[in-house]
Computed example of a mutant assay.
Amino acid sequence: MNLLKKTTIKISLVLLLGLVFTSETWAQERSNQEPRTSPNATVSQTIGTTDITITYGRPAVNDREIFGELVPYGEVWRTGANESTAIVISNDVTINGHELEAGTYSLYTVPNKDKWTIIINSKLSWGTQYDKDKDILRFEVEPREADSRERMMFYFEEVTNEKATVVLHWENTKVPFTIKV
C-alpha cells in the first residue's frame, strides 16, 4: 500500500475519533451533563504494522436476559449501544478468511444460539439505522460460553505480528473472529 493511502487512513482514524469524542460531548449536553447509561469505549491493537481500533457503547446486563431477549435472536443488532460500533483498519486485512480493504466501517451482528453473523458495513449511524445495501462483508462464527461480564466489551487475544482474535464478550457469551494482516 502506498504512503498516500496509509496517510489518508490515519487521518480518517483521527477524524473518526474526533467525531466520537464530539458526539459524546454533544450527547452529554443533551442529557444535562449526566453520564451515559452505556458509556463509550475504545480498544486498539497493532498487528504487525496494522492498527485496528474499535469504538463502541458499553451496555450493562442490569439483571436482564440479554441474548434471545433484550437482543433478539435472528435480528440485526448494532452490537453495542448508542452509535454504530465503528472499526477502523489502517491496512488491508483478512477477517475470518475474507479480504477487507483498509477503512472505517460499522460492525453489526445477527446473534443466534449456535452461530452469529458478523457484518462489516460502510454506513456509520446513530442507533439502528442499519442499511443492508451498505454491507461490505458478512461471515458466520460460533459463540462460546464464557464467564459472566456485566458490561459488554471488545478485546484482543492471541496477538502476534500476523494475526489477532477480536472478542466480543457480554453476559455469558464470547464471540471471536480473527483478523490477519
Rank of each mutant, 00 (worst) to 15 (best):
L3M: 10
L3Y: 07
L3A: 12
K5M: 09
T8F: 09
S12C: 10
L15N: 12
L16W: 15
L16D: 13
L17V: 13
L17Y: 12
G18F: 12
V20N: 00
A27G: 01
A27Y: 04
Q28Y: 10
Q28L: 14
E29C: 07
S31G: 01
S31T: 08
N32L: 12
T37V: 11
P39K: 08
N40S: 13
T42L: 15
V43M: 02
T46F: 04
T46K: 12
I47M: 10
T49N: 14
T50P: 00
T53C: 11
T53F: 06
I54H: 09
G57Q: 03
G57F: 03
R58W: 00
P59W: 08
P59K: 07
P59C: 07
V61L: 01
V61A: 07
N62H: 10
N62P: 00
E65C: 02
E65T: 15
I66W: 05
E69M: 02
V71N: 05
Y73D: 03
V76W: 04
R78D: 09
R78V: 09
T79G: 02
A81K: 06
A86G: 01
A86D: 07
I87V: 13
V88T: 10
V88A: 13
I89T: 08
S90G: 03
G97H: 09
H98D: 08
L100I: 13
L100M: 10
A102G: 14
A102W: 08
T104F: 00
T104Y: 00
S106F: 04
S106Q: 05
S106D: 04
S106E: 05
L107W: 13
Y108T: 01
Y108M: 08
T109S: 15
D114L: 08
T117K: 15
I118Y: 08
I120L: 11
N121P: 10
N121D: 13
L124M: 12
W126P: 00
Q129P: 00
Q129E: 14
D133H: 03
D133E: 15
K134E: 15
K134C: 10
I136S: 03
R138C: 05
F139N: 11
F139D: 11
E140H: 03
E140Y: 04
V141A: 06
V141M: 05
E142G: 01
E142L: 03
R144A: 12
R144V: 01
S148R: 08
R149D: 01
E150D: 13
R151V: 01
F154N: 01
Y155F: 15
F156G: 03
E158V: 00
N161I: 04
E162K: 14
A164S: 15
A164K: 06
T165Q: 14
V167D: 07
H169P: 02
W170Q: 09
E171Q: 12
N172M: 14
K174T: 11
P176L: 03
P176E: 03
I179W: 11
V181D: 05
